[in-house]
């Protein structure tokens, strides 16, 4: 134990990676949860890939000398917000299907832009674009962490303030508007802030892991946990445990921590589906009332099970 702490104290890149793991778990809990409630989990993928297209544009503008001050991260943020706004516009009527289509179209468009621009970017900078796809949590610098931390804090604050509104928009958009809530504003707020957080998380850990961490824990928790607060808490736990196990594993075996984290998150979802099936089979008779704290304990136990399974798997 002391050795591990010693190791962490001595290696700043490890400190940054651990901090990033916590921050990304916060983003997943605050944003992934509501995207899954909204039936919009695909938007996490759309935004992450839009960030890639935006980066390509940023590099192109910078490198061609057209707009030398243009930092590629600005391109990533701009594209993500555009995707969120476009998705929000398509879904103003409250129809999820329309938003899914909008995400699909913008996904395709931004990837096409990225591929198109790659021909005009000097080859030595192309890996920077692909970095957005794979990412490496162990290679983050201080600025990455500061940016990620500030959006995570912003996102966390907004979610604390407006989680009821986000839930109401998802549950009953029409009713919320009729009762006098400005549902349209909250609809856009939720999508755009999520998009900013996802874009920065993408820079940190890559589009594929962002998608896995944003969606799988939320989907898993939503199968099992029966209160909004319980789901948020459980998403945080599952996301954090997956990432920490990923990081730890990468020290024992030569493997990408992101890959392990993504696989674990996905497995958590499969496990949740399985638990739900077993539970449904057992509880044929009306089940007893459960309190919120019971659910939290259950969630915690479920995440421990996942953890144990993982530990078990690296033993051999």
């Amino acid at each position: 134990m002391i050795e591990i702490i010693q190791l962490i104290m001595d290696s700043p890149f490890l400190q940054r990676a651990l901090l990033a793991a916590v921050l990304i778990a916060v983003v997943a809990a605050a944003s992934g949860t509501f995207l899954v409630f909204r039936g919009l989990s695909f938007m996490a993928a759309g935004v992450a890939h839009a960030a890639l297209g935006g980066t390509a544009l940023g590099i192109f503008l910078q490198d061609s000398g057209l707009v030398p001050w243009f930092n590629p991260i600005l391109g990533a943020l701009l594209f993500s917000v555009l995707v969120a706004a476009f998705t929000g516009y398509a879904g103003e009527s409250g129809l999820t299907q329309k938003m899914e289509v909008a995400v699909g179209v913008s996904f395709a468009l931004s990837m096409s832009i990225a591929v198109f621009l790659m021909y005009y970017i000097p080859p030595y900078r192309v890996p920077q674009i692909w970095g957005y796809l794979i990412g490496d949590i162990l290679l983050l610098n201080n600025i990455d962490i500061i940016m990620l931390a500030s959006t995570a804090v912003l996102l966390g604050f907004i979610t604390l303030m407006f989680n009821k509104e986000f839930v109401y928009v998802s549950v009953d958009m029409e009713g919320s508007i009729a009762h006098g809530m400005n549902a349209r504003a909250y609809h856009y707020l939720m999508l755009i802030v999520s998009a900013l957080a996802i874009a920065l998380a993408t820079k940190a850990v890559g589009a594929i892991l962002v998608y896995a961490i944003m969606v799988a824990p939320a989907a898993a928790s939503n199968e099992l946990v029966k209160s909004v607060r319980g789901v948020i808490f459980s998403v945080f736990l599952i996301a954090l445990v997956s990432e920490l196990v990923g990081l730890t594993t990468s020290f024992v075996v030569f493997v990408s921590p992101s890959a392990i984290a993504g696989i674990l998150a996905a497995l958590a979802y499969l496990l949740a589906l399985q638990i739900k099936r077993v539970r449904d089979r057992v509880h044929v008779e009306p089940k007893a009332e459960k309190t919120e704290s019971d659910e939290m304990i259950d969630t915690f136990k479920a995440s421990l099970v996942i953890d144990q399974e993982n530990n078990h798997s690296h033993d051999h």
Partner: peptide, 24 residues
């Protein structure tokens, strides 16, 4: 809208969110 209390058609209520009776 300040005067209104509205009950939409039942199928307009999304069931993907884990709401309890009390939350609704």
């Amino acid at each position: 809208r300040k005067m209104i209390r509205y009950v939409p058609q039942r199928d307009r209520i999304e069931l993907t969110v884990p709401m309890k009776v009390k939350d609704i």
